[in-house]
């Protein structure tokens, strides 16, 4: 049980190991705060989609399962999107179309198809929680690195001295690819050290 939860946090990390859900990973991580909000939105959708998929797995015909899962996911994304727009309009504005794009985030469909549709409810929820939190810390780290180099602060708290000339490219699209590439390489290096 514990293993199912922990694997998403490191060994099968969705961002750094499996490279899933790249579109929100790269797009919204211009700051640590945006990365964190997107991560938490994904945790919510992943948790409830896995719950529903694990509950109804017996009654869904095999041929239409992907369409059914997608509709379930789209429903929960609509809930998050409506909630965010009402409660946190600024964050909703910053995430823009990338919040609805959670629907096609391969992590969620991937976990529903590969795990929740084959396992019991409790294990599926642990798996979803682990993967979601793994995704969240990945996004938070990526957002922090980009915000640090691109603006000199993390979570809008100034860290570099006032004379620091920010590397604007880091918060532009190019920086997203470069930083993620370097972080994935770093993860590979850590795995090499461990073995």
């Amino acid at each position: 049980m514990k293993k199912e939860f922990l694997k998403g946090l490191w060994n099968q990390h969705p961002v750094f190991r499996q490279l899933l859900g790249m579109c929100p990973t790269l797009a919204v991580t211009t700051s640590a705060k945006n990365g964190l909000s997107m991560g938490l939105a994904v945790v919510f959708v992943l948790f409830f989609s896995s719950l529903v998929v694990a509950l109804i797995k017996q009654i869904v015909p095999h041929q239409v399962r992907i369409a059914v899962y997608t509709v379930i996911i789209a429903t929960f994304v609509t809930i998050v999107d409506t909630f965010m727009r009402a409660q946190f309009p600024a964050i909703s504005q910053a995430l823009g179309p990338y919040l609805p794009l959670i629907i096609v985030n391969c992590i969620i469909l991937g976990r529903c198809e590969a795990f929740a549709s084959k396992n019991g409810v409790a294990v599926s929820l642990l798996d979803a929680l682990g993967m979601g939190l793994g995704f969240t810390w990945g996004l938070f780290v990526l957002g922090s690195v980009r915000e640090f180099f691109g603006t000199g602060s993390i979570l809008s708290i100034r860290i570099m001295p006032a004379g620091y000339d920010p590397l604007v490219a880091m918060i532009l699209p190019a920086g997203a690819f470069l930083v993620l590439g370097l972080l994935v390489a770093l993860m590979n290096r850590i795995e090499e050290w461990k073995s």
């Binding site: 532009l172 699209p173 190019a174 997203a176 690819f177 590439g181 370097l182 994935v184």
Partner: peptide, 12 residues
């Protein structure tokens, strides 16, 4: 993947 991402960054 890391190399592909870095090449994509340079393309961007």
């Amino acid at each position: 993947a890391p190399l592909t991402l870095i090449v994509a960054g340079l393309l961007a």
